[in-house]
């Protein structure tokens, strides 16, 4: 009886095939892993562009959280530290004091603290009592009458980062954007300018003060991050508005 050698493989052939198969699987796996790593990118978060915000109040009521993740912030570099602060006082205030009837903020979330008296004027610092702020934007509108140092930002320690942000959908000016998590904020253009200027000045005047130099450099980097982001936004906007052929030709 003749042995059926054609249907049997010798051990060497089997090992060769096994090695080849294993190599192909390993290569495919490694390729897939690398491709996955490359496309992973940085996590993105929602943020509000204050230059697009109109203070409509939607942030207070459309957030899926009971207490909105959008809060007011004060850019002190832009603030006038006014006594008659149009973001703090009702337009028909009875007195320049902290009585509730004089305050513009319906929840009393803006805190007024005396700083100094100069040139016959009293100057005050305004900070946000974050848990009290509901993101209605009333103070933002008031402040915009003058310096516009109060503006809205998404607080990332509160935001649950919905895939489709309900406020972003309802925002009448499409002021909400996805930004890299490391960027955290979107500054007003004017805030970017004043922070950058202060950073440059601090670096210039730091001398041997390493701490001052570092603080100046951080401010400048913060401003430059904003500038880069806005440039990317402009580029993306230009590319999307150009006809396809034009963009490809370019």
């Amino acid at each position: 009886m003749m042995a059926d050698t054609s249907s049997k493989k010798d051990r060497r052939g089997f090992l060769n095939d096994a090695l080849r198969t294993t190599s192909v699987i390993a290569l495919a796996g490694a390729g897939g892993f690398l491709a996955g790593r490359r496309s992973e990118g940085e996590p993105m978060v929602w943020q509000l562009d204050p230059d697009q915000c109109i203070g409509c109040g939607h942030c207070a009521t459309y957030c899926v959280l009971d207490e909105s993740a959008v809060k007011c912030v004060n850019c002190f570099d832009m603030c006038g530290f006014c006594d008659i602060c149009t973001g703090y006082f009702e337009m028909n205030y009875l007195a320049l004091d902290t009585a509730a009837e004089n305050q513009l903020c319906p929840t009393g979330a803006l805190v007024r603290k005396f700083i100094e008296e100069k040139s016959g004027q009293r100057f005050y610092e305004y900070t946000i009592d974050v848990p009290l702020c509901i993101g209605c934007g009333k103070c933002v509108i008031g402040c915009a009458l003058m310096n516009g140092s109060l503006y809205m930002q998404v607080e990332h320690d509160r935001c649950v980062d919905c895939n489709e942000c309900a406020i972003a959908v309802a925002c009448p000016t499409q002021a909400f954007h996805r930004i890299p998590a490391s960027q955290k904020e979107i500054l007003k253009r004017r805030a970017e300018a004043v922070l950058g200027a202060r950073g440059r000045r601090m670096m210039r005047e730091a001398g041997d003060d390493a701490g001052m130099y570092r603080e100046g450099a951080e401010l400048l980097e913060r401003a430059l991050t904003q500038r880069r982001w806005r440039q990317q936004q402009r580029s993306a906007s230009t590319a999307s508005s150009e006809p396809e052929g034009t963009a490809r030709d370019a």
Partner: peptide, 22 residues
């Protein structure tokens, strides 16, 4: 359901900023 925010924020008039008097 006002998904698009067309019916406003729903906040009370207390939240409106009025400068007409000034």
């Amino acid at each position: 359901v006002d998904t698009w925010g067309d019916r406003g924020s729903g906040l009370s008039p207390r939240f409106e900023f009025d400068v007409s008097e000034l």
